[in-house]
């Protein structure tokens, strides 16, 4: 006996999903695109990036689709104008905090582009430009490079290390604008419980954590030295 599904309307189409399905999962299953940065379907929803906003009829305002479960009778609009405008603003804020534009192949650059922003424009081009993160390269591990200034605190690496690998080698550090990530007690991957699985680099949407082989091919020579 199967559990009865939840019927809802998304972008005008009737959908039926399993109870507990989030609006983001429902949209993806229906082939609809919703922007995300902190989401990775291997990890529990986190609700940090706030760009997966959608419109729900009767709701006070846009809701985060990654942490909102589908309920019977919901009428959802994934292309909701206010949600998209706000999502674009949030990504513009994120681009403004990086000292350099994200590499074109990164998820951040691609999401920005798809939202109509120019990811190559640099932080000063943002409508809300200001202080950016100080470049800090941690190059001490043989396989993993960590460029702290590219970290957008999405928590994907920390959660991958926790939920996928169970190594608990990573943590969020600091708070507010100065939030970042660290391995172990802050002395880098090599001095932590890291097992070099690469799950963090794999999920990182900005290449703040990257595999050394790829990093060494791409890195500019003036980027070396600093450690955290």
């Amino acid at each position: 006996m199967s559990t009865p599904g939840v019927k809802l309307t998304m972008d005008g189409a009737e959908l039926e999903v399993a109870p507990g399905t989030t609006l983001l999962e429902a949209a993806r299953a229906a082939g609809l695109w919703i922007p995300t940065l902190c989401f990775d379907d291997r990890l529990a929803p986190f609700g940090a990036c706030r760009i997966c906003l959608v419109g729900v009829e009767g709701a006070k305002g846009p809701v985060a689709s990654c942490t909102t479960e589908a309920r019977a009778g919901m009428v959802v609009e994934t292309q909701h104008a206010l949600s998209r405008r706000i999502a674009r603003n949030v990504v513009e804020l994120v681009l403004s905090e990086l000292p350099v534009p994200p590499a074109p192949h990164t998820e951040l650059a691609q999401v920005a582009q798809r939202l109509g922003l120019d990811p190559t424009a640099g932080p000063a081009a943002a409508r809300w430009a200001g202080v950016t993160h100080e470049p800090q390269l941690d190059h001490r591990h043989p396989y993993l490079a960590l460029q702290h200034e590219l970290c957008i605190s999405c928590g994907r690496c920390v959660r991958a290390c926790d939920e996928v690998q169970g190594a608990f080698a990573l943590t969020a550090v600091g708070r507010g604008f100065h939030a970042n990530i660290a391995a172990g007690l802050g002395a880098g991957f090599a001095e932590s419980s890291c097992v070099s699985c690469g799950a963090c680099a794999d999920t990182c949407p900005t290449d703040a954590i990257s595999e050394r082989l790829l990093f060494d091919l791409a890195a500019a020579p003036d980027h070396r030295g600093a450690a955290r």
Partner: peptide
Amino acid sequence: HESCGKCFPCRVGLTRALE
């Protein structure tokens, strides 16, 4: 100063508003 740093709009946005 008090933003916890978890969500993106607050983490960056309050610093920008202050600026």
